[in-house]
Each structure stands twice: as structure tokens, then as C-alpha cells.
Design a protein around this nucleic acid. Structure first.
Lengths: 221, 221
DNA sequence: TCATTACGATACTATACGTTCCGTTATCAA
DNA sequence: TTGATAACGGAACGTATAGTATCGTAATGA
């Protein structure tokens, strides 16, 4: 998810198909025999940090590349040397956030409720969760962005899928439950409440939602 | 949801707290004794139509007010005379879409599946559904927009709430099922699949999702 | 007929993305 | 040590677009 070089063809988002050279600490991106000053790893990290800071402070639509550059103490060119445009920068910065902690208590219900609570606490404290719908809404008319978002979305789903897989291994749920569907059944209601209804969501709401979602999934007895 | 006049204070979104004069066909917005040329109802409708057209064609982030004005055959000032900024225009245009048809078959499962299928057909055909997350993502840092979106979100939820209410009246589900939660349990998974996962969603997926969501809600037997 | 207000058109201001150039600096190779 | 190379921060620039202001004109009520 880190770009080292791209064709300067000027096509909007067209640069995203560039080769994604593997990054080495303080290394450079060009051909093996190239020389010159290496890219600064500190600058790279400062840019990502500044992006997240500003996303929290002013939100996605008010975030400017100029602002990120100032906050990070770098020139704008240094940003555009690494990311072809503002969108991939935001996607990468956002994608680096863990967002929540996966709980492994040995019981499906507890795992889900506690994991969702850490997610909610993070969301309510930073409003960073709202970045994702902002980006996701652009997907339909921007296939390249869609590709970028895929691993980010997957990363946010995976902990819940793993929780259900462990539950299946323990025999808490039937073998024939579709785990992907089950994960969406739990995450979906929370997401629509957060994004599409108003206000913040109290952690107290997590209990009833998970209970209702699980009532058709858990084995009886 | 139609603005007739607002204080020209220049504050971003601050104008939304203006009085919302009731609209009469071809009427004007000012005080009762005011004279002058009335606002054109044709222009108003043409602007909203052009906005929806362009939302489908180019998407939310590429939609320009200039483009709307040209498509509608009006001047930019005519748009800004009615809406304080681009965002409320998009919200209103989007809010006018029914989006889906509420089915009343006398059976909960059928109502949900058929209603969701019309929703999906519309979404897949126009990509217009993606406009909502684009807007919703801005909510956290824009309270005025949040207020605007509330009735739109409510309008999209209400058909599903009504479907569940009818089911309760028929005795298909227990009296103590929380209907708001139940609605989110069905709409939530579909929404996250559409917005946060890639690609389009096949109507075939509606069946299993609804079945799983209902498995914990429906009365047995 | 006159005052008033909306009309389309156009010029304008301000902001922000993304590019390009500058002199400087860090690294590698000869 | 010296030279080639490429990234650095900074700043100027071109383009696009939101929103404002102003033009002469058109529609309505008094």
C-alpha cells in the first residue's frame, strides 16, 4: 500500500496501476543501480501522521494537501512524490488504523460485544470511522479507488470473521452457517446506525443488537 | 425541504437555519405584500432534474454547480437563489427519489425480499445509492448537513419499519421485538455489502440475508 | 406606467489540487 | 575528494470550481 513511483501521465487516478515497489527502510524506489539522496522515512511517517491528525480535526472534505504538508513540515512535492493524489494518501493513512481490538474470550457473544465496544469507543472519540463512507461513496464512479479500498474494508471485516470461525470451531454455531453473512449481520446494523442515522451510538446498544443478530445463529441449549 | 430565502451572511452552511417559507406553485417567497417577478417553477424542477441526471452520470464528487446550471438551462445565480450551497441541493434532489417500492404481500418474508429487490435494482442501475454514504460521511464535521440528512434517512427506513409493523399486527413476530432494531438487522447487512464491500450486489443474495436475519425474529411454527 | 424582483449571462474572488522549478542536501561511485 | 544523482523544503504557477456580484432584460402587481 505504499507507492514509490508512478507514471506521470496526469490521468486522474490512472497512476494507481503503477508498480508497487517493495519498500526498504530509508531505501529508494528506482532501479537497482540508481543513486541519489534516499527518500526520508521520517517525512513519510510524518505525512501519514499529519493526515490522520487532520482527518480527526477537520474531517475528510476539509482536509487539504497544503495543510498536511505544513503539519508534517514537508513540501507539497514530497507528498506527491509518494502518493499520486490526495485520495490514496487518505486511504493509506486510514487503512493503517487498527480501529478496534479483537477480543478472544472463548465465547462468541462476549467476543462480539467487547470487540464492537472498542470499535465504538474509537469511533465516537475520533469520528475517524466516518472517513470510510466518505471514500466508499466515491467507489461507484472511481474503479481505482474501489481497488484501493478493498484491502481496507477486508481488514475491518476480518476480525469479525475470525471471531465467528473460532465460534464454529468451538461448536457454538452450526457448521452450515455462512460466516460472511453472519459477520455482516452483526456489523451491518451497527454501521447503518452510525453512518446513516444521526448522532453517536451508545455502547449500551451493542448488547441488544448482538443478541438479536445471534438469536438465529447460535445453537440452542 | 425547499428553501426560498436565507440570510446572505456567507457562513458555510449557516444559512440553513433560515426560515423555510411554504412554497406555492409559482409563488414567491418574500413577505405577503411583496411584488416583482415570481420565481420560475420550471427552473426549480429543471435544476433538481439536472442534479439527479448528473449524479448518475458523473457521481457526487464530480458534480459541479456550473454543470447543473448548464444542463438545466439556468444561470448559476438562479440555483444559489434557491439553495444556499451545493450540498443542500444534492440532498434535496436525492431525497426526492423514492428509491424503492414498498411491497405489501401479507407476509413479512415476501415483503422484505421484494422490497429489497426493487431497491437493489434501482441501486445497481443508477449508482445513485452511493450518494448517501458520500453525504453521510460528512455528517460528523457538519451538523447542519446532519440535520438535512435526517429526514432523508428516515424516509428510506420508514418502509421497512412499516413492513415490520404490519407483520406484528398479523402476529408474525412477537410483540416484544424491537422493530427499529429489526429493521436495521435486515437493512444493515445489505447496506454494508453495497457500500463497504466491492462490486454490485446480486438480487439473489437478498434471500439468504433476509432468511438469516429473520431466523431469530419470526415466531416458530 | 412604475416599482419590484427573478431571469440568464458573465465577470469576479477565493480556495485547493496538482505541477514545476529553485537552490540545497544526502548518498553512491569513481 | 570529487562528481553525478535524486530527494529535500519552499514557492510560484496553471487549472478548476464554489460562491458572489453585476449586468441588461423580463414578468408581475399596484
Amino acid at each position: 500500500m505504499i507507492w514509490e513511483a508512478w507514471p506521470a501521465d496526469g490521468t486522474l487516478m490512472g497512476e494507481l496501476q503503477m508498480a508497487q515497489a517493495e519498500r526498504v527502510k530509508g531505501g529508494r524506489g528506482g532501479a537497482p543501480g540508481s543513486t541519489g539522496r534516499p527518500r526520508s522515512e521520517e517525512a513519510h511517517q510524518a505525512i501519514l501522521d499529519a493526515t490522520l491528525d487532520l482527518l480527526v480535526e477537520v474531517g475528510f472534505s476539509s482536509l487539504t494537501v497544503e495543510g498536511v504538508a505544513q503539519r508534517a513540515g514537508v513540501g507539497k512535492a514530497t507528498i506527491y512524490r509518494r502518493w499520486p493524489s490526495k485520495l490514496p494518501l487518505v486511504v493509506e493513512a486510514f487503512g493503517r488504523l487498527p480501529g478496534f481490538e479483537e477480543v478472544d474470550s472463548g465465547r462468541l457473544e462476549t467476543d462480539l460485544k467487547e470487540t464492537l465496544k472498542t470499535y465504538l469507543a474509537n469511533f465516537n472519540a475520533t469520528s475517524l470511522g466516518a472517513v470510510f463512507p466518505s471514500l466508499a461513496g466515491e467507489r461507484a464512479h472511481n474503479p481505482e479507488l474501489s481497488k484501493l479500498l478493498e484491502p481496507v474494508a477486508r481488514g475491518r471485516r476480518e476480525p469479525f470473521v475470525r471471531i465467528f470461525e473460532r465460534a464454529r470451531e468451538r461448536g457454538e454455531i452450526s457448521e452450515d452457517v455462512d460466516i460472511d453473512l453472519a459477520a455482516d449481520l452483526v456489523v451491518g446494523p451497527i454501521s447503518v446506525m452510525l453512518f446513516f442515522r444521526g448522532g453517536t451510538l451508545s455502547p449500551k446498544m451493542v448488547g441488544p443488537i448482538v443478541d438479536l443478530a445471534l438469536s438465529g445463529i447460535l445453537k440452542k441449549g
